[in-house]
């Protein structure tokens, strides 16, 4: 059985969304599309629980607020990654508001929050952040590859 799912990757400027996608897939389209129309499509096919899952990844150009993301880019999404930069507070300061806004377009579909660039911060800082932020998040590093594959597989499972 083959299943096709649309996955949106959103977050502030420079949090590492494109780098995370690059870690996960072999890109075919140029990154220039991101700056031209604000989105770039990539594809990753994975085998999961006896099914072939085609993940169509919509890597959306960074915005300072989720309100600014064109609604049409979020439409029909089966899953979402919200990425923030662990080393830049302004990228997760309005995390709850941004997630609330994005969830409106998700129709109950799963969303996973990723705290990226774990290679730039101390372990103790991450522990403190976990206790200060109400929303659960998974730490990743596009640089070292930490948790990248796992995050995508987790979302694929939740979408099935």
């Amino acid at each position: 059985m083959e299943i096709v799912k649309k996955v949106v990757i959103a977050g502030h400027f420079g949090v590492g969304k494109t780098s995370l996608v690059s870690r996960f897939v072999h890109q075919k389209f140029s990154d220039q599309y991101l700056t031209t129309i604000g989105v770039k499509i990539d594809k990753k096919v994975i085998e999961l629980e006896g099914a072939t899952v085609k993940m169509m990844l919509w890597d959306i150009a960074g915005e300072s607020s989720a309100m600014k993301i064109p609604k049409k880019y979020l439409a029909g999404a089966h899953g979402l990654f919200y990425v923030f930069d662990l080393s830049r507070e302004e990228t997760y300061r309005n995390l709850d508001t941004d997630l609330f806004e994005l969830n409106k377009s998700l129709n109950g579909n799963p969303a996973i929050v990723l705290g990226n660039k774990s290679d730039l911060v101390e372990e103790t800082f991450i522990e403190k952040l976990h206790s200060s932020i109400a929303t659960d998040f998974k730490i990743t590093s596009a640089k070292s590859g930490e948790n990248v594959e796992e995050a995508f597989l987790q979302l694929a499972k939740e979408m099935l």
């Binding site: 649309k6 075919k28 389209f29 499509i41 594809k43 169509m56 064109p70 049409k72």
Partner: peptide, 28 residues
Amino acid sequence: SGILLASYSRHKSIDQDMVAGMLTAIKA
């Protein structure tokens, strides 16, 4: 979603799933 439901081609050259996605993105 921009997901390809079906396609027809005289000469397949590029990944049609991705073309469908990009066409939808451009359209949007």
